[in-house]
Design a protein around this nucleic acid. Structure first.
Lengths: 337, 337
DNA sequence: CTGAAAGCGCTAACAA
DNA sequence: TTGTTAGCGCTTTCAG
């Protein structure tokens, strides 16, 4: 069995209570005995059992992050932002990926609650988001990420409608009149907001703008799906009615789409202009750097984690709904350099 | 306070022990009472406290993964492989990044032990690797990842020397005689093994091969460092003695290096051939797709996690040291298409 | 300032 | 089959 507080107490010639005190209220113990106890601890290489401490009433210094997929650069970057805070604040980070499955989201949340984490950061699945309330009812702090929350909670989000508008205005300003949106259910609310933004930019644009947008639905936010989208786009529409300006729901789709277009002999940006979304590093590295709507991923994770820590720790915490404003970054996929 | 086993027992009109039984040995409880207890649980939305269960002797269904950086594609992909196993086996994954700091590695390990995880996957820092022993001494299962282990332990690694050899032979076969290695301390053992492989390929190559390799040391495995390396490489060597074949310690360095070379007007692969390492997806997506030494990252994570689960669970577990063989993937950065 | 003792929520004998 | 009870390792009163 592992070395317990009892062993330390015996070796230091004190009681369990005293050892516990040097751990939790060092100032209450005399200099001399504290030194003795500390020595005993390090001699025995004592690591106090976290579960036992928690049963004893202490809060767990651990928080959970529930997201779609660590492998996706967008989420990975958010995770980095979160992690830098948890490290600084000495929390343990438990990661769970939902793969955008509501069922998995539920079970992840239960798992984290069972572990008695003191807080949860949740990037809701397309269907989810109502789950947070249940978490809070159990006294576990929670902040929503990449999803706008209500007044009674903290959240960190980005204005996706605005992002959609910015991208669309850019395409319109370049003279494109036949537009398309490539997106999927993968990140439900986000994609539909971006599309809404696109439509709203079109209606307010006035002039002889062709109403409506061709929407290509993809099953996932991946490069492969982007390539697939290119194929269906090229197959569907006659050359004359083919869209010349395309907004993708995220950068991976844009990368795939551009590949697909390229191998079909369609030139970007000469024949078709493509705008991505997120502005992951990859967008700058591909052959034709991609114009994209930048989301401050690292900062989102960082901010959300700080809000969570504050909610966990600060008595007088007031909820905040942080909303970042996305920013269009123009590159070669829409404007020839 | 949260709802406890006591509450469930009262509501179902049974004792705590019975509730515990339906949780842990359902077959021992009668059909009728089990149904009643289950109903009570779901009415109350009971989530058993994991810490309490652990104190009560149960093993924690959680494992820890200690790696350098979630944000790095190489590690992210390993994490995905691990995660798919933990999900399937119903384990919780606690992630910690060391940022290649031995101190952080130590504290991460302590944290995980304190949490009483039942197993740990460790990708050791450059300096570390001796730490695993301490983990095992505390009865926590552990498998080494990306690092060859001894007989008394499980490990999953890739033969980096062989990878270095393969890359070098490729460069030699293309006629390159002035070679360089761009690498850093970031992934210590890995990079030095790759360099060793390079040297060994040179010595065994025979012929009028220029002995030795120019080594450019970089502080980290990043694109920025790769660009920096290009600058120093171009500044250092006179045009005539400049290397024409370069192996990079990883793909990000190669991406950066190629950028740096490109902006200095050096053509890849015409003037210089570049080989990367890892074969992350990005290697295929950049303007000039990169020849790289492929490591099966997802599979490494997957395999390691399965070994760990087996070590945790199977009584008759026998240790295995899995060594993957890397594979050279030739692309445009060494051979013009 | 230190020691003794009562739990925390649950599991696992052991009885009934 | 079910109930009873003794811990698990620690924190936290409360006396001394």
């Amino acid at each position: 069995m592992a070395v317990t507080i009892e062993d330390v107490a015996r070796r230091a010639g004190v009681s369990r209570g005293t050892v516990s005190n040097v751990l939790n209220r060092p100032d209450v113990v005399s200099e001399a005995t504290r030194a003795r106890v500390l020595a005993a601890m390090s001699d025995l290489d004592f690591i106090p059992s976290q579960p036992a401490r928690m049963l004893g009433g202490l809060r767990n210094r651990s928080i959970g992050l529930v997201m779609h997929d660590v492998g996706h650069p967008f989420f990975a970057e958010i995770a980095r932002g979160v992690e830098d805070v948890t490290i600084r604040e000495n929390y343990v980070l438990t990661l769970t990926s939902t793969r955008d499955d509501a069922e998995r989201e539920r079970s992840s949340l239960r798992l984290l609650i069972a572990q008695q984490v003191s807080g949860i950061l949740l990037i809701p699945t397309a269907s989810g988001a109502g789950e947070v309330q249940q978490v809070r009812e159990r006294g576990v702090a929670a902040v929503l990420l990449d999803h706008e929350g209500g007044a009674g909670e903290c959240s960190v989000a980005v204005d996706d409608i605005r992002g959609g508008i910015a991208a669309t205005q850019h395409l319109l300003s370049l003279g494109h009149r036949r537009l398309a949106f490539v997106g999927g259910p993968g990140r439900g609310r986000q994609h539909s907001d971006r599309l809404s933004g696109m439509r709203s930019a079109l209606t307010t644009a006035g002039g002889r703008v062709r109403p409506g947008v061709q929407v290509v639905t993809v099953p996932a936010d991946t490069i492969a799906c982007g390539e697939e989208a290119a194929r269906s786009l090229l197959a569907d529409s006659a050359r004359r009615s083919r869209p010349t300006g395309i907004l993708c729901g995220n950068d991976l789709l844009a990368v795939g789409l551009m590949r697909g277009l390229g191998s079909a002999g369609v030139s970007v940006p000469d024949d078709v202009a493509v705008v991505g979304y997120d502005d992951i590093e990859l967008a700058t590295l591909v052959g034709t750097p991609i114009t994209s709507v930048r989301q401050p991923m690292y900062e989102m994770g960082h901010t959300a984690a700080e809000l969570l820590v504050s909610e966990i720790r600060d008595r007088g915490h007031t909820h905040r709904n942080v909303r970042f404003v996305p920013e269009l970054v123009v590159r070669d996929s829409t404007v020839r350099p």
